[in-house]
Nucleic acid binder design. Sequence first.
DNA 1: CAGCATCCATTGCGATACTG
DNA 2: CAGTATCGCAATGGATGCTG
Lengths: 143, 143
Amino acid sequence: MSTAAAGPAVGDPGARPVVASTPGERTVVTGRQREECPVTAVLRRVGDKWSPAVLRLLGERPHGYNELDRAIEGISRRVLTRTLRALEAEGYVRRAALGAPPARVEYSLTDQGASLRELLFVLGQWAIAHRPGPVLEAETTSD
Amino acid sequence: MSTAAAGPAVGDPGARPVVASTPGERTVVTGRQREECPVTAVLRRVGDKWSPAVLRLLGERPHGYNELDRAIEGISRRVLTRTLRALEAEGYVRRAALGAPPARVEYSLTDQGASLRELLFVLGQWAIAHRPGPVLEAETTSD
DNA sequence: CAGCATCCATTGCGATACTG
DNA sequence: CAGTATCGCAATGGATGCTG
């Protein structure tokens, strides 16, 4: 996978083969391509400030609303709600209302959400290997 | 890789093993963890509006500044500059000034940038497989 | 050609009071 | 417990004129 690939590319929509690379031909990224690009869509969805934390916690086990609120240091309820709704709309998170007042709601990952979390895990492996200058080796498990 | 993993998790910093999962123990994502998490860092860097397009074009071949400006429909020079500077600061993009006026500058991917592009390609595979409801099959190469 | 400076619009995020 | 309503601040993005 070290050469420029055929098939879908970053900035490209769906299953369309890459348009360009005719010698002398200039590739242009149109607004439509950008908006429809699935890569960009996912990145912008989980690239916000709190989604990774939510996905991480729900990946461990289901959580209630206030439970999430307490588990994520610094988040406001307003934003937590927005984040959950957004993840739910994308099909990554499931919301289940249990029982009458005192209303209990449980948030959990869908299969897609779990799959996404695995993907982010891979991304994490890459980030640790490529991001900082050299790899930190003095890292211990102590506090 | 279908079970919750040991090793770095989304929301976790560096190479530290996951802290929690003691039964009954509540995992808390602290502000520090969030800020230092390499996954979040990468996501927020390339999860902006234009970075994917830039990476895609530079992945094909090096580009000049105005060349990028023309190739990316809808971007403003202000934002293009900011995006390039940000990618450069992270070590994904290299800026090379060539010759005297009329100043020519060439932007290209570093090794890290190329690696990142491959990663985004993988992300694209995943997105196409998991994102839309059913897979669009009526997709043709026609305009 | 490759930007920077300025100004404005939109969006994201944070704090907090209140409600079923 | 699980949110919504309101407000204000900060960051992002957009348009464009000017410069070496």
